[in-house]
Nucleic acid binder design. Structure first.
Length: 307
DNA sequence: CGAAAGACCTGTGCGC
DNA sequence: TGCGCACAGGTCTTTC
């Protein structure tokens, strides 16, 4: 599943292979892929024809291409979304939802999404200081400006900063987290509190921080919160490092199910296998219509778990 | 505002 | 063989 590290890898791929090229045509092959775009499939397509992206940016699991008039193409990959760049003549797989061709006749871009939870939409950028134009039409600006208050797509104004961006404030996060009345894993998955973390990396971070998923947020001590935050940062950074080389060929397979981080997983999906720290079998619990994996010894259930 | 449940999707693997 | 069902799970919407 594409979480922050996978989405960042894709962003880098789009920056390298799509930014700076002029779109000839955007073909919507499945209307559900643009269901949130108020202009509909035809409006979406006509809004993109002839445009040239200036940057590829990301917050949490969202990524977007910016254009020079404060409009943006916003993308979320959902559960199974992929961005594929390759020979425009290759066969069209059945799950391609949107296809972009370019005036240069080079590699096309295909948004492919088996389970159709992902989506694309055109939107406006709001807030922050608008980006200065590139000095000489090149890549003068960093691809993902670290500054506070950078412009964000309007539809994701409610998405909190992710822990790898400069706008992330640990003090603000800590205050908001401990004010919650819920379990710590629910909080980690709440993208309006902290973004970029999904079920896999939530379990991994909790395992590293030795915290149980049902631990009530209001009982977390400052040291535990900083331990958790460090674990989240570490797990995301390491996964990014492990996957960061997968988007450099002409045929670019940028997907979230690559499993390149599988070998490094300590908890997720390891029910019954021995804990890498203490050897106790990892346990699987039902959680929010999915699963949580914990070491019953390293991550003891709290006395008063949040239901 | 915050918390929780339901809806949205489809391919895979399992038991019967 | 074939059928139903649990499972995978991120986000938006609705309800309280």
């Amino acid at each position: 599943m594409p979480e922050l590290p996978e989405v960042e890898t894709i962003r880098q791929g789009l920056q390298a292979h799509v930014v700076g090229r002029t779109i000839a045509q955007a073909q919507v092959l499945h209307p559900r892929a643009v269901r949130r775009d108020p202009a509909g499939p035809a409006g979406f397509a006509s809004a993109l024809a002839g445009r040239t992206a200036s940057r590829a940016e990301r917050r949490g699991k969202y990524l977007w291409l910016t254009f020079d008039d404060d409009r943006a193409l916003l993308a979320h990959l959902g559960m199974s979304g992929q961005m594929l760049v390759g020979d425009p003549g290759r066969p069209l797989s059945p799950h391609v939802r949107v296809r972009f061709t370019f005036l240069d006749g080079g590699p096309d871009l295909r948004f492919t999404d088996q389970r159709t939870f992902g989506q694309l939409m055109m939107c406006s950028l709001r807030g922050g200081d608008l980006p200065a134009p590139p000095a000489n039409g090149g890549t003068a600006r960093p691809p993902c400006p670290p500054g506070l208050g950078r412009p964000l797509p309007e539809p994701i104004a409610h998405i909190a900063p992710d822990p790898l961006e400069a706008a992330f404030d640990p003090a603000v996060f800590t205050a908001r987290l401990t004010r919650r009345r819920t379990g710590v894993k629910r909080a980690l998955l709440d993208q309006s509190l902290i973004s970029g973390v999904g079920n896999i990396y939530a379990d991994e971070a909790l395992w590293r921080a030795r915290l149980h998923w049902a631990r009530p947020t209001e009982t977390l001590r400052p040291g535990e919160v900083s331990r958790l935050l460090e674990a989240v940062r570490d797990v995301l950074t390491e996964a990014l490092k492990a996957g960061g080389t997968s988007f450099d060929a002409m045929y670019v397979n940028v997907n979230g199910e690559s499993g390149y981080f599988d070998r490094s997983l300590h908890a997720y999906g390891r029910a019954g296998e021995p804990c890498d720290r203490c050897g106790t079998p990892i346990r699987r619990d039902p959680f929010m219509n999915r699963s949580s994996y914990t070491c019953p010894r390293c991550q003891p259930r709290p006395r008063h778990p949040h239901p």
